[in-house]
């Protein structure tokens, strides 16, 4: 199914300013019900700010200067804080990277989940607790009745992340934003959490925006991928197209720098020279210019728009026709 056919969430030309720099610059993507859109990219490229904007949780230093975030026909970005509080949890929820930092250490996990439910439902505490208990069953926590009475410090990292997920899901939101939900976890626990998310998507038709820098996680769960670089979308495509046929030099090099099954041991991995520009170093042209093996004068002076590459594959590069050269560099 084409995500564009019937989007539940539409991020449309979102731009976020911090200190005069567009740290998120003209970001657009859509997510259909039951689909997973992955936002990937290196540290500082604007993944978290994009996700916070969807929840109305931007830090004070950051300001949305343009763009809409449509949940069907509602523009979330135009909501007041009071209206947003109604939407958060019920329509759209977020889970953060560090579960221990986002749970209240002094409240039992049971009452944290129950309160999240009561925020949107006029039910008794006992009813909310019963909901919370069912939720723990759904996220695969054994012995849920006992767990409800425990405090976050009594639980492992994987368990805390499941509690976070329970809080995010208890009101059945239609969109779940997950900011590096498994980065802090062991791979065996990560596999459990990713499976849980797949189940959500399949059973409830939840739309997921998944933020990660792990190409393995993307390969596992995403339907579509937006690769971000220095605040902009470099490339956006269905997951198989992106991995099989990257159309942006940055994506191609990023993929080549990950060790693969059939690599010769200890062979040189492809690298990307230099470092990501900081917001005050963003030039007028393509932000990847300084590190790109294909860069020309045009790249330095003109920002490439997202070009259509067929299907729903798009790439912001002036030299898509020269991608074969990148594959040589990367090999």
């Amino acid at each position: 199914m084409d995500a564009a056919a019937n989007p539940l969430l539409t991020v449309d030309r979102l731009t976020i300013d911090i200190g005069g720099a567009n740290v998120v610059d003209d970001i657009s993507f859509t997510v259909a019900p039951g689909k997973v859109m992955a936002l990937v990219g290196e540290s500082g490229c604007g993944k978290s700010l994009t996700s916070y904007a969807m929840l109305g949780l931007l830090p004070p230093a950051a300001r949305r200067t343009a763009g809409r975030i449509m949940l069907e026909n509602t523009d979330l970005a135009a909501l007041s804080e009071r209206q947003f509080r109604k939407a958060r949890g019920k329509d759209i929820s977020i889970i953060f990277q560090e579960p221990s930092a986002s749970l209240d250490p002094l409240t039992t996990v049971g009452s944290q989940i129950a309160e999240a439910y009561r925020a949107h439902h006029g039910v008794s505490k006992a009813e909310a607790y019963e909901k919370a208990r069912q939720m723990l069953v759904d996220v695969g926590i054994p012995d849920p009745a006992r767990r409800l009475d425990q405090y976050p410090f009594e639980l492992s990292g994987g368990m805390c992340q499941r509690i976070m997920i329970s809080i995010a899901l208890i009101c059945g939101p239609r969109v779940l934003v997950a900011d590096e939900p498994t980065t802090a976890l062991d791979v065996t626990i990560q596999a459990q959490i990713l499976d849980l998310m797949k189940k959500l998507v399949a059973d409830r038709g939840t739309a997921i925006v998944l933020i990660t820098h792990d190409m393995g996680v993307v390969a596992d769960i995403a339907d579509d991928v937006a690769v971000m670089y220095a605040g902009r979308i470099a490339e956006i495509a269905p997951v198989h197209d992106l991995f099989r046929q990257p159309k942006h030099p940055y994506t191609a090099l990023l993929l080549a720098s990950v060790p693969k099954l059939d690599d010769a041991p200890k062979a040189d991995l492809a690298t990307i020279e230099g470092t990501v520009p900081t917001p005050n170093e963003f030039g007028v042209g393509c932000r990847f210019t300084e590190r790109c093996p294909l860069a020309t004068d045009k790249c330095r002076t003109e920002q490439p728009p997202l070009f259509d590459c067929g299907g729903s594959h798009r790439s912001a590069c002036w030299h898509i026709d020269r991608m074969a050269e990148i594959r040589e560099v990367a090999a």
Binding site: S156, M159, V187, T188, A191, L194, G216, A219, F243, K260
Partner: peptide, 27 residues
């Protein structure tokens, strides 16, 4: 084997065809 099956391979074809062996429970 569980560790290996839990590490996602950075290739959607390989990863999605992989035989799963997901551990239950925690350390």
């Amino acid at each position: 084997k569980a560790l290996m099956s839990a590490v996602p391979e950075a290739d959607p074809e390989v990863q999605r065809a992989k035989q799963r062996f997901i551990l239950s429970g925690e350390l």
